[in-house]
Design a protein around this nucleic acid. Structure first.
Lengths: 153, 153
DNA sequence: GCAGAAATGATACAGTATATCATTGCTCTG
DNA sequence: CAGAGCAATGATATACTGTATCATTTCTGC
């Protein structure tokens, strides 16, 4: 994990490049996400920005900010858990691959991995065979992290 | 799509085999799911059994029935949409593979496919490399069906 | 029939997400 | 630098998804 301030700078640069603004509130939400390896819900984050920055945000505002951050490829929404996680490639040079998430269903700790491109090709072929179109090949896998697996055993 | 009554019979047989009971209410819910290729939410189904059978069910009851049907492998829960779909292998002879779902994000029409086992092996290897354990390899892909893709174009 | 277990009912509430309309603040142009 | 127009946020209400808890009914096997 790199220094959070560096990532925030990279995020800001990336936003300017696309003509978007990383406002204070948006930065607060992003910071909360960057400070944890765990996926957090919109309401977790409302609580988080309150504790860390004394800022109060309504759900509407939070969801709008989350949508914005997602559209800028700074965070990911995990459908499996209805939670959000920072994108681990904000300050990378190499281009984005399709993300694959391993989500601990006990503690919400998330690992982001690039999907093997062969695998994506194989999935895409299968989808096309039945006449469907793949909108997002993002994969989310229901897992247990090492710690939680140890406790459960 | 086979005849629904035959599938219901197969479902009933499968339940008896595992010492479970496919009660009237459970059968009503399963029937509603079998009558549509589209994934339906718990509340959609509450509406559905009311219209089709005049039966009123509380959310608690519906979720209990859905849990039961899932535990008997008669239906699947789709995390991507928070909706439910019948299992397309209720009256098949061949053993269940890991399911992969193609979900139209516009109309909720679902296609169920067996995942290539090589692909599952590859996923499992990746997961183990980072110390995680795969709980359920069920894959859900965000797609557009042919009809919705045509309308969008 | 009766005891015990399984299934369902009833009520309340927690958590997730969006609709709608109002207000504030930034940016660009003249 | 004023003011128009748009981007961002605020405020209120409400819809949707899911669970906790305790009560009642129904089924099964003895």
């Amino acid at each position: 994990m790199q220094d959070i301030n560096k990532i925030l700078d990279a995020a800001e640069a990336s936003c300017s490049a696309s003509g978007a603004r990383l406002t204070d509130k948006r930065k607060q939400v992003l910071s909360c996400l960057l400070q944890s390896q765990k996926a957090q819900s919109a309401y977790d984050l409302i609580q988080g920005v309150k504790e860390n920055y004394g800022a109060t945000m309504q759900p509407t505002t939070m969801y709008r900010i989350l949508d914005f951050l997602e559209s800028e490829n700074l965070i990911h929404k995990l459908q499996l858990a209805n939670k959000y996680i920072y994108c681990s490639h904000i300050s990378c040079d190499h281009s984005h691959e399709v993300p694959q998430f391993l989500i601990c269903n006990s503690c919400d700790r998330v690992v982001e991995i690039d999907v093997n491109s062969e695998l994506i090709k194989s999935l895409t072929r299968t989808v096309e065979q039945v006449g469907y179109t793949l909108v997002s090949p993002q994969l989310e896998l229901d897992c247990l992290c090492a710690d939680c697996a140890a406790h459960a055993a």
